[in-house]
């Protein structure tokens, strides 16, 4: 890792990058932004299509409980990986299981779990640390570049490569599986299995990006780039690529700005993402569709 940091800080010293990238924590952030941005952008298109936005938020909220459980089992505060991934995956799988086995509407199930996991998390955090440390809670909720470690970056890179490969290989099937379970069956797919696969992929990516973006704001980065792309594209192919572009620009530019401003990185990333969204809204009359996709890309 040191070697990579030296090369990038060398570019900053030479003036190819802003001087702020002489700092190791900013280089870590930049690498994380370049890894997570495209992946969140691409997966966001499926989240928006399948109307799973608040599912993503629930996973983000479950992170608070995950951190507390990790601490309870003796993990260090800067790396509660087992607690985080374990608890968030359990919550995601349980919600999907209940949705498939009950007659409750999806948003009802999410509504029940969404607030619970955040409340339980804060209580657990106070119980485990015997105090209410606002900085710990703030870092989880809004993200903090300072707390991003080499191990976080390596975990993020491995998770993103694995998730990215599975996502690319199964994109068509995941998309089709969400349209109608019987239609998917008639096409030789297993829609329930595909739903579990996507839920697990999404959970891993959301958890991996929490330190940078924060649990409260991760929803925005999953949904807003895809929503912005929707305003100006004419087909599914353009939808994915423009969403990837918006998300990557949001994470990198947001990170850069957060180096100059005394605010959490996640908040600035969200701000940039929102500016792109409103910009796309303004461009909609010019570039947007009118029910007909004109030509090809």
């Amino acid at each position: 890792m040191e070697c990579i940091y030296e090369i990038i800080s060398g570019w900053a010293v030479a003036g190819y990058l802003p001087a702020i990238f002489e700092h190791t924590f900013m280089i870590r952030g930049l690498l994380a932004a370049l890894i997570i941005g495209p992946l969140l952008g691409a997966m966001g298109t499926v989240v928006v299509t399948k109307k799973m936005s608040f599912f993503t938020q629930t996973i983000g909220n479950a992170a608070m409980s995950g951190v507390a459980i990790g601490l309870l089992f003796g993990e260090p505060i800067e790396g509660t990986y087992a607690g985080l991934y374990g608890f968030c995956l359990i919550v995601a799988l349980l919600m999907t299981f209940v949705k498939n086995r009950s007659r409750l509407a999806n948003d009802t199930i999410i509504g029940v779990v969404l607030a619970q996991v955040l409340g339980i998390g804060i209580i657990l955090m106070i119980v485990v640390t015997s105090q209410f440390n606002i900085h710990q809670v703030e870092a989880i909720l809004f993200g903090s570049l300072i707390t991003l470690t080499d191990m976080d970056l390596i975990t993020l890179a491995i998770a993103s490569v694995v998730v990215g490969m599975i996502f690319i290989c199964s994109f068509n099937r995941i998309m089709l599986g969400g349209f109608n379970p019987i239609l998917a069956k008639s096409r030789g797919l297993n829609p329930v299995f595909l739903e579990y696969v996507f839920v697990m992929l999404m959970t891993i990516v959301v958890v991996a990006s929490l330190k940078m973006i924060g649990s409260l704001l991760v929803l925005v980065l999953v949904v807003v780039p895809a929503a912005g792309a929707q305003n100006i594209v004419r087909n599914l192919r353009q939808f994915v690529w423009v969403s990837v572009l918006f998300s990557t620009v949001s994470t990198t530019v947001g990170l850069l700005l957060s180096g100059f401003l005394p605010v959490p990185s996640g908040a600035v990333i969200v701000l940039v993402s929102s500016i792109l969204f409103y910009g796309s809204l303004l461009l909609k009359p010019v570039l947007g569709r009118a029910g007909v996709s004109q030509g090809e890309i």
């Binding site: 109307k51 998309m175 089709l176 349209f179 929707q230 939808f239 994915v240």
Partner: peptide
């Protein structure tokens, strides 16, 4: 079909999803 109807999926995209394994994008 259960999906957000404002999402830009064309008839071409919809049929393509069923015909190929290579990701549409």
């Amino acid at each position: 079909l259960e999906f957000d109807h404002s999402v830009p999926i064309t008839v071409f995209d919809f049929i393509s999803l069923m015909l190929q394994r290579v990701p549409l994008f």
